[in-house]
Structure formats: C-alpha cells, structure tokens
C-alpha cells in the first residue's frame, strides 16, 4: 500500500519552499520502507475520494489567500470531516491562517477559514521577521524562521503548538501556533519539517500508525538529522539557546 500526502493549494501556498514539507515526509517514510505519494491539489480540483494520510498547507501572500478563499469554502466540509476523523494536518504561516474560523484583514474584511480548529487570525500586527524563531512544544524544541504580522486568538480549550522561546508567535499569552487533535498550525516558516525531524517524525509516525504500519528510523534518518541539527545550531547562533530545550 502507498500513503497519500495531500498538498493543498500547492500552486498558491508555496512562496517559500513550502512543498518541501510534503517532500520531507515522503522521503522519510520512504527511508522507513513505506511508499508515499505527494498529491497536489489546486483551485477547482478534485479531492481524493478517500481520506489522505497527511494533509499539508504552505505559505502564500495575501493575494493567494484571497484567490483560494472561495475554493477553500467549497472543500472545507470534507477537510473538517477528515480532521475530525484524526487525519494529521500541517499548516504553515499563510496556510495556518486559513485553518481557523476566519482570517480578518486590516480593513475588517473576513475571509472564512476551513474551520478545522476554533481560532481567528487578525492581520495588522507589526510584521516580525526573525531569523531565529524558537518554540518549545510538547514534542520538544522547534527552531525556524519567522515572518508574519498577525494576531492569533485561540478558542476556549484550544492549545497552542508550544510556547515562544524567541520570536512573536500568536501574540497572545506567549503561545505559538495551534495543536488540536492531529491538526498542527505553525508560524515556523517554510520547510519546517526538514529542519525539525521530531515534528516530521511525529506526523510520519501518526500517518503510519493510522495505516497500521511501523515507522522505523534508519541510518538515512540519522545521516540527515545530523545535518538538520547543524542547521538548527546555525539558526540559533548568537541567541544563547541550544537546539534541545
């Protein structure tokens, strides 16, 4: 059997190497002996008839978020059903801003989100661009780059992905992103999974487990994860923080 990684709006939400996340998942599953296929979805397309094993959303400019809004509303009921059934989602930055109830623009215009999680995003905060963005999550320390200007308000009982150790994050209560059921949203920019193998393995492991498969680590994982560790060290240079919390 082959696992399916569904890359939502692969054309519109891919301004920052974002399809790297699906690629990393497919590659790591492949090292573990699990066939996986990345299936891109674009505006007006057909969703797979059966639920995919992982869903990813990347980052795009506001113009792209507007351009996909109608289509997102069309497919949202299916996405909600998948999320409720436990399909793992990873949504990054612009994609993260679209998985909640709404994205509220500076002029007050509301773009409806997919409604996978109870959260609202308000644009208009001063944009923060940080070359060291550090988040302490239940999975461990996550490291990346931050580039966003919005406030994220989580609904009652909805948990952030982690606490901001360095950066702006949700700008509410020191939280970063969202982790609700198997849905993860984050401001860790770009191919977060390449740099943070523990998050990649969390998602790959979930996908494998749901399909009744083992996800063993291999020498390839070890080889590349040393490079990822070095990359996190590079990102943390001068911050006084270590790659492991």
């Amino acid at each position: 059997m082959s696992l399916t990684i569904l890359e939502l709006f692969a054309q519109h939400l891919n301004v920052n190497g974002d399809t790297g996340n699906g690629f990393v998942l497919r590659t790591r599953l492949g090292w573990a002996g699990i066939d996986a296929e990345v299936v891109p979805y674009d505006v007006g397309g057909e969703l797979p008839a059966t639920a995919p094993d992982v869903v990813t959303l990347g980052h795009g400019p506001l113009s792209a978020q507007r351009a996909i809004a109608d289509d997102l509303a069309r497919i949202a009921p299916t996405l909600r059903a998948w999320a409720a059934a436990g399909v793992p989602f990873l949504a990054v930055n612009g994609g993260f801003q679209l998985i909640g109830q709404a994205l509220v623009l500076e002029d007050g215009t509301r773009i409806a989100g997919a409604g996978l999680v109870d959260l609202t995003v308000e644009l208009g905060a001063k944009r923060h661009v940080g070359k060291s963005y550090v988040v302490d999550s239940a999975l461990g320390r996550l490291v990346g780059v931050e580039n966003q200007g919005a406030t994220v308000r989580l609904g009652d009982g909805v948990q952030p992905l982690g606490a901001v150790a360095l950066g702006s994050g949700n700008r509410v209560a020191g939280g970063e992103g969202v982790h609700h059921g198997n849905v993860i949203g984050t401001y860790l920019h770009g191919p977060v999974l390449a740099v943070n193998p523990l998050l990649a393995d969390h998602l790959a492991g979930l996908a494998a487990e749901r399909a009744g498969l083992e996800y063993p680590r291999t020498a390839d994982h070890d080889r590349v994860d040393l490079l990822a560790l070095e990359t996190r060290r590079t990102l943390l240079a001068g911050t006084g923080l270590s790659p492991q919390a």
Partner: peptide, 9 residues
C-alpha cells in the same frame, strides 16, 4: 540571505 527555505522549491 537569511531565509533559505526556497531551496526546497
């Protein structure tokens, strides 16, 4: 050039 994320594209 501090965000090399685009390398993945």
């Amino acid at each position: 050039s501090y965000d090399p994320s685009w390398l993945y594209s």
